[in-house]
Structure formats: structure tokens, C-alpha cells
């Protein structure tokens, strides 16, 4: 169950996508997501899907690993799509029961929704899979830098995020260990009613919480011992630099957004 968590995972590599500046990737994926919501027809969806597939191909990340990340989200995706079938008054009626009526327009809308969510998730996965967490949070910090003028704690926020990403595998390992220890003493996590199973998780969560606090305390001491004193006067070993490829990708993202908006205007 915990093995499927791919959040914050990084697939090492040296492809064009890996080498792009994290800021470029974050900006591009933001534009891409906006485009997904602007898109209305098969033409625009098709081109967006094509861009995604080409990017995945360039990154050399196996499609299977990309799809594995979707697994824990399957229920949410299907649920959203199914709701969309019925949540539509227009179009020819296909069948109906109780208060639900399915129409052909609703079915098409559900198809779009399914594509939209899947593509949205896959595109963000591609960014996290091809960028080290450190680079990702560095990029985010630099992008949000202007907000520092408004006293938004941007550095603290990005530090918190990178530490959270760093500790995901550690905590998963620990949760697994506690779970096994509980199982060895007869705890049952897999059978029974949903409420029973939720209750069975309590003895897992409490030790996990307690140990997280202990870890946080030790980590803070260790960081202090290594001269951490906030973002002020901090330098970076890996300075982020924008290369020619970043310029091209950023120009392309502007073009993409313009193109999708134009297509939507013409009802395509």
C-alpha cells in the first residue's frame, strides 16, 4: 500500500528535460495546466496530449512508472468522471434512474474530464520525476522571491518543503516498521468494516506522530550545529542558470497558451 506513493520521487537522468532549469519547468507546467482548463475540443486536447507524450518520451521515464503514480488516485479520477456523466442537462438522453440522467453530452464531458485530470497529474509528475527536490524548491523560492518584499516567508516555506520531501521515504519506512510491529502483535489493518480499519490506523498514527516530533527536534539541533540561521546571507552550491533551451521552452509556453486560447475562441 505504501509502496505506491511516488510523491517527491526523482528519476535520475541527463536528458533535455532533466537539464531544464526548474523555474522553466514550473512555469511551463503552470501554463500547461491553464491550457488544459481553457481547452474545449478534441483538437486542443489532442495537441496537449501529444506535447505531454513527446515530453515523456524525451525524459526517457518509462510510461509504466508514470502510470503507477496514478494508481492511488484512480478512485478520485473515476469518481470525478462519473459525476460528470450525470451532471449535465443538455444533449440526448441515454438512460436515467432515480434523479440521475445520463446524456451523450455528459458522456463526452466526462471523457474530457478524465483526460484533463490524468494529463494534469501526469504533467506535474513529469516535473517532479525529472527535478531533484532541492532544485524544485530552489526554483520555487526564486520564482516567489518578489513576494519577500511583502514579508511572505518564501525561504522558510521552501526549506519546509524540501525537508518534507526529504523525510517522505524515511517516514514511509517508519510507518511500515510500526505496521509490521503492530501486525506481529495481532493488529488487523486489512479486513473489517471501513470504520474498523480507520480505527486500526490510530495505533499506527500516534507512534508515527510522536517519532516525527522527536525527529524534527533532532533535525533542528543538527541544522543549528551546521550554522543554519535562516535564509539571510545564504549562498548556493548549484546556482540556477537559464540556458538557451529554457528560453525556447518559455517562448513555446507563451505560444502554446496563445494557440489554445485562439482555438477555444474559434470553438475548436
Amino acid at each position: 500500500m505504501l509502496k505506491d506513493v511516488t510523491l517527491g520521487q526523482y528519476f535520475p537522468g541527463d536528458t533535455l528535460i532533466h537539464r531544464l532549469d526548474p523555474r522553466t519547468k514550473i512555469l511551463f507546467v503552470t501554463v500547461y495546466i491553464i491550457a488544459l482548463f481553457v481547452a474545449k475540443t478534441w483538437v486542443s486536447y489532442g495537441s496537449l496530449l501529444l506535447i505531454l507524450l513527446i515530453s515523456i518520451a524525451i525524459s526517457k521515464i518509462p510510461l509504466a512508472s508514470m502510470l503507477r503514480g496514478l494508481k492511488p488516485l484512480t478512485i478520485i479520477i473515476i469518481f470525478t468522471a462519473v459525476i460528470n456523466i450525470f451532471y449535465n442537462g443538455e444533449g440526448r438522453q441515454l438512460f436515467s434512474f432515480w434523479i440521475f440522467t445520463a446524456t451523450d453530452a455528459g458522456l463526452i464531458k466526462a471523457g474530457y474530464m478524465l483526460l484533463r485530470i490524468t494529463m494534469l497529474i501526469l504533467s506535474t509528475f513529469l516535473v517532479t520525476y525529472t527535478t531533484t527536490p532541492m532544485a524544485l524548491t530552489d526554483g520555487l523560492e526564486l520564482l516567489l522571491n518578489p513576494l519577500k518584499k511583502l514579508k511572505v516567508p518564501v525561504h522558510e516555506f521552501s526549506m519546509m518543503m524540501s525537508i518534507a520531501l526529504r523525510f517522505i521515504p524515511t517516514l514511509i519506512e517508519e510507518a511500515d516498521k510500526i505496521m509490521n510491529a503492530q501486525k506481529a502483535r495481532g493488529a488487523d489493518f486489512e479486513t473489517g468494516k471501513l470504520t474498523d480499519r480507520a480505527k486500526a490506523l490510530l495505533p499506527l498514527l500516534i507512534p508515527l506522530f510522536v517519532s516525527s516530533f522527536r525527529r524534527a527536534d533532532e533535525l533542528a539541533t543538527a541544522m543549528e550545529a551546521r550554522c543554519y540561521h535562516g535564509g539571510e546571507g545564504r549562498t548556493r552550491m548549484k546556482k540556477l542558470r537559464l540556458a538557451a533551451a529554457d528560453g525556447i521552452v518559455m517562448s513555446f509556453s507563451v505560444f502554446l497558451l496563445a494557440a489554445i486560447i485562439t482555438l477555444a475562441r474559434f470553438g475548436l
Binding site: G8, Y10, T132, P133, M134, S162, I163, L165, R166, R215, E218, L219, A222, M223, R226, C227, Y228, H229, R234, T235, R236, M237, K238
Partner: peptide, 18 residues
């Protein structure tokens, strides 16, 4: 509980960066 970064060299760089 004393390793801050997700990549070895980034972690070693933490103190000099500070």
C-alpha cells in the same frame, strides 16, 4: 535525523551554503 537534503552532495553543501 541530521541529513537535510535528498541528494548526498546537496546535503554536504548545506553548512557551507549557510
Amino acid at each position: 535525523n541530521q541529513i537535510v537534503a535528498s541528494v548526498v552532495e546537496d546535503d554536504v553543501a548545506f553548512a557551507p551554503e549557510n
